[in-house]
Amino acid sequence: MRARDLAEIVPTATRDTTGAEAVHIAAEYRLSALAVVGPEGLPIALLPGSQLLALVVPPYVRDDPQLAHVFSEDAAEEFCGRLASTTIGALIDEGMVSVKRLPAVGPDDTILEIATAMVEHHCPQVLVRDADGAMLGVVTLSRALAAIARLAGEDSPGLRTRLDVDLVDLPNLGHTGQDSMDAAAVSPADPVQRSGGGPNSGGGTP
């Protein structure tokens, strides 16, 4: 199996996406990481789930994790509310979000290269990019693990579904199937965009 076979289309964020919208997208589509694309449609960051979680942790609590214990329930939840008033772009500019190294593989890369990229970057998702840097899709952790399980001789309907059906097309996501994709992609005012330039353009269904 090559990266092009495992790549799937996922919703992405832009610099204008708010922090709240970013975690919304990741939660709704069960993404282990969220890609951020620039105006040209090229990826500029890939935020693993740990970084998305860190968005609600103020830097002073990151400096001293003991301080997380001193907040009341209301005060702790207040930090989540603050995500609505900040954008991914602002977080990148403030250094709250790291954009230094993009975990990426080429379309012909093997499962070993995909796994290595995930391990090396400590990121549960890798971008699949062509020679021009255009994003063809992503390989998610669950699909990479499903591929590894199949290659290790495991099999089940669930495993096959994870390999054959993209995350956005899996049932019981609140929205389902193509409707949800369209809902995520259509409005110009909506910062949420699909990766890969259009529906199914990155492959994903072998």
Binding site: P58, P59, Y60, V61, D63, D64, L67, V70
Partner: peptide, 12 residues
């Protein structure tokens, strides 16, 4: 290192 983060918390 110990006092500065808690100070920022309080001021916040």
């Amino acid at each position: 290192l110990l006092i500065a983060p808690v100070t920022i918390l309080v001021c916040d």
